[in-house]
Design a protein around this nucleic acid. Structure first.
Length: 492
RNA sequence: CGGGAUGUAGCGCAGUUGGUAGCGCACUACGUUCGGGACGUAGGGGUCGCGUGUUCGAGUCACGUCAUCCCGACCA
């Protein structure tokens, strides 16, 4: 498939459009014919699978096990936790019937009114309710705790407005749900999982994140505390990339999950939940991509190295032979590599296409260079080309992949840090927020101030960040005393 | 759910005062090419979103309807 790169270059003018085109052209995903839903194409799914594998291992290292709970949730479950239902009621898809029948004119189907469900079923928007309804049966004693379950699944939230990967009606995610005997243990777990997410984002996705805790209004429905990682996209907007919630005893009480503690006292179980979704794909794309297309971190790239031969008829056999050796050696080192000797596409086309897809390293195996024992190596992050001796090329590539991984992370950190500002003047803030960026501002802690900022600037309090030293000051909006600076930004 | 726009080939679009459907890319075949998105020749592909109406005649006009996209509000 040929693609016009020129279409991708005007991202400062219309970042959303650029993002959308990139996702489609790089063959990651596309809009489904179903409202608000997305088709993830094989290349995009391969990246998601890599993410899953890494995250899954990281979870397991902390003692978490995978399980699976039903897609459909009885309506009554959702109403058991007051705040929770408040938060999700507006965006639930509801199953009301279980059968269709052919219509009177026999050219279509209609819902069979006789098949109406006694109690409607909700397609899960998140699984706290059905999982805690199950935990009720599992938990009798402190000896049954903790329970540390995770599930990889799809969820559905009937969003008004959707965007590929960032917000689709159906999305893939993992949701962890833990039950604990003590408040301390649950709080510790919520923070621990946030750290896992932050580590994954930074070490694997090469996306720097700011960890923090959400304000009350931005909290997950039913949580006592919501911890978040916030990443900055190249247009200066924030993307909430993962959340971990301390749920207190809210769900324990709502679903009557009681146990006998060590002191033989009846107590409600303490809960956490935490999740990351295919939205991470959006973070990956919007953090690193450039005008030539995707830039993937080597640790998550489905294809790390591509080899393109250039030669005429009789030279090809020799190039094929040489490539075979390199491919074999790279694979032995655990590096994924493709030798693309398809003769129905010209080299120039292949170069552009693999750049669009973000393959970290490209080798050009040319008959001309090969005589000198050289091969051209191009790194996707800087687009720099270098002629390297074919002897020991495998080690060179391995080191280069590591360097690319580090370089794109550093680049993202530099970009982000250059766009974080301290600001103490609201008028100034209102002007500067238009250009994006993260603002560290004193906040008096009131909902009124928060609402006013949102109303007047479309920016929200992303979190109270952990990584910056907190100083007391004066709220820039209300002039009232403030305990700390919070992170404010426009967000996806 | 409010405001705006758009539905014509897989994608992007043109289609004049109503007169029988067109361009670019992609696709298929053959040939020449192949060191940064090749070119030539020949092809295939459309009930113009759907419905009703006006008319001798509707992609074009009217009314209705459905869908999608963008901007808000809501959200991972």
């Amino acid at each position: 498939m040929a693609t016009e790169l020129k279409d991708l270059t005007k991202r400062s003018e219309d970042y959303s459009k650029w993002y959308n085109e990139l996702v489609v052209k790089a063959e990651l995903a596309e809009q489904a014919d179903v409202r608000g839903c997305m088709v993830i194409r094989p290349y995009g799914y391969a990246i998601w699978e890599k993410m899953q594998r890494v995250l899954d291992d990281m979870f397991k290292e902390t003692g978490v096990q995978n399980a699976y709970f039903p897609l459909l949730i009885p309506k009554s479950f959702l109403s058991k936790e007051a705040e929770h239902v408040e938060g999700f009621a507006k965006e639930c898809a509801v199953v009301t019937h279980y059968r269709l029948k052919t219509n009177e004119t026999h050219d279509g189907v209609v819902v069979d009114p006789a098949a109406k469900l006694e109690e409607e079923l909700i397609i899960r928007p998140t699984s706290e309710t059905i999982i805690w309804n199950t935990y009720k049966n599992w938990i009798k004693s402190y000896r049954d705790l903790p329970i540390l379950c995770n599930q990889w699944c799809n969820v559905m939230r009937w969003e008004m407005r959707t965007r590929l990967f960032l917000r689709t009606s159906e999305f893939l995610w993992q949701e962890g749900h833990t039950a604990h005997a003590t408040r301390e243990e649950a709080e510790e777990r919520a923070k621990q999982m946030l750290k896992v997410y932050a580590k994954f984002a930074e070490e694997y996705m090469a996306v720097p994140v700011i960890q923090g805790v959400k304000s009350e209004t931005e909290r997950f429905a039913g949580a006592l505390d919501t911890y978040t990682i916030e990443a900055m996209m190249q247009d200066g907007k924030a993307l909430q990339s993962g959340t971990s919630h301390f749920l207190g005893q809210n769900f324990g009480k709502a679903f009557d999950v009681q146990f006998l503690n060590k002191d033989n006292q009846v107590e409600y179980a303490w809960a956490t939940s935490w999740g990351v979704s295919t939205r991470l794909m959006g973070a990956l794309i919007m953090t690193h991509s450039d005008d030539n297309g995707l830039v993937l971190p080597p640790k998550l790239a489905p294809l790390q190295v591509v080899i393109v031969p250039i030669g005429k008829g009789d030279q090809m056999a020799m190039l094929d032979e040489k490539a075979k050796t390199i491919v074999k050696n790279l694979k032995a080192m655990g590096i994924s590599v493709k030798y693309d000797n398809a003769d129905n596409k010209r080299p120039g086309f292949k170069f552009a296409d693999y750049e669009l897809k973000g393959v970290p390293v490209r080798l050009v195996l040319g008959a001309r260079d090969l005589e000198k024992g050289l091969v051209e190596v191009m790194r996707r992050d800087t687009l720099e080309k270098e002629n390297v001796s074919i002897e020991g090329i495998e080690t060179y590539i391995k080191n280069l992949l590591d360097e690319i991984q580090q370089n794109i992370y550093k680049k993202a950190v530099t970009y982000r840090d250059a766009h974080i500002y301290e600001c103490d003047n609201y008028e100034e803030f209102k002007e500067r927020i238009k250009d994006g960026g993260f603002f560290l501002c004193h906040w008096d802690g009131t909902e009124e101030t928060e609402a006013r900022i949102k109303e007047e600037t479309q920016a929200t309090i992303r979190c109270v960040p952990f990584m910056f030293e907190q100083t007391e000051g004066v709220d820039m909006v209300s002039g009232k005393p403030a305990k700390a600076r919070v992170l404010i930004a426009r967000a996806y």
